[in-house]
Computed example of a mutant assay.
Amino acid sequence: MSTIGSEGWTLVHQARQKHYDDRYYGHWLGTRDDGQWIIGRLYPGKSMDDGFRDGEWAYSKRFAGDPSTDNADAALTAYVEMAHNTFVWDRVFDQTVGEAIDLYWAGPEVPDAPKLAAGWAGAESPNPDRVVSSAGCSIAMPLHEAKFLLLHYLRRTELAAKAHLTKGVTVDRHGAVEKVRCATGPIRFEYGYNTYWLT
């Protein structure tokens, strides 16, 4: 991860490519330790490398407030929308950017940290005749990789978890993400109708 701008934004994702007019367009996604997120449009230019000028950019929109996970989710949505205007969107763009955010949240490799497996399983729904059987589990891997995978599971299964139906009963999305981000060893928690773990 690199830091850009005088305000110390950490660059989480950047996309730039050549358009039919032979100019390069793109934008970037960043965050700071205070939980703010930002999307910035790069300057149009003649190469892949001239989007920033002295570490600055052409335009930005910031997302600040509590909880910080909402800022990241709002920034992701706006970033994907901007991708159409900067000519970098493709069919896997949303997934790629979501993975970049999860990789940032998972943090760097921690020497001597335990190896853990990441997993999730659907819990019983309010309808006793319907049990969600979908599940995923990994082999034991370095902590930061397991955290990344569990954050990926959270993102991928968010709709199926139906957390809005268990508001106040389980952790919310911000709470789930924070549990994974702060994990230094095994954890287990309920998010909506799903159970997630590092073990």
Rank of each mutant, 00 (worst) to 15 (best):
T3D: 15
E7P: 00
G8T: 08
W9I: 08
V12H: 05
V12T: 13
H13Y: 10
Q14F: 00
Q17S: 14
K18H: 01
H19V: 05
Y20N: 07
D21N: 15
Y24E: 11
Y25R: 12
L29G: 09
G30E: 11
T31G: 02
Q36K: 14
I39V: 14
G40A: 15
R41I: 07
R41Q: 14
R41N: 02
P44L: 06
S47K: 12
S47I: 10
M48W: 09
G51N: 13
F52I: 02
E56Q: 12
Y59M: 08
S60A: 06
R62T: 15
A64W: 06
G65F: 03
G65H: 03
D66H: 04
D73M: 13
A74D: 15
A74P: 01
A75V: 06
L76D: 03
Y79E: 12
M82V: 03
V88R: 08
R91K: 12
R91D: 14
D94E: 11
D94Q: 04
Q95C: 01
Q95A: 11
V97S: 04
G98V: 05
E99G: 07
A100T: 08
D102R: 11
Y104H: 15
A106E: 12
G107N: 09
P108Y: 02
E109T: 08
E109M: 05
V110H: 06
V110G: 04
V110P: 02
P111Y: 06
D112V: 01
K115C: 04
A117D: 02
G119T: 10
G119K: 08
W120F: 07
G122Y: 01
G122C: 07
A123M: 13
R130S: 04
R130L: 13
S134N: 13
S134F: 07
G136A: 14
C137L: 01
S138D: 12
S138H: 04
A140L: 07
P142E: 12
H144E: 09
H144D: 13
H144A: 07
A146E: 10
A146W: 03
K147A: 08
K147G: 07
L149N: 08
L151A: 03
Y153P: 09
L154H: 00
R155L: 01
R155A: 05
R155F: 01
R156K: 06
E158W: 06
A160E: 14
A163P: 10
A163V: 12
A163E: 14
G168S: 07
G168L: 09
V169S: 00
D172I: 01
R173A: 04
R173S: 01
H174C: 01
E178K: 11
E178C: 05
K179E: 04
K179T: 03
R181F: 01
A183V: 04
A183E: 06
F189Y: 12
E190R: 14
E190T: 10
G192W: 03
N194S: 09
Y196S: 02
L198N: 04
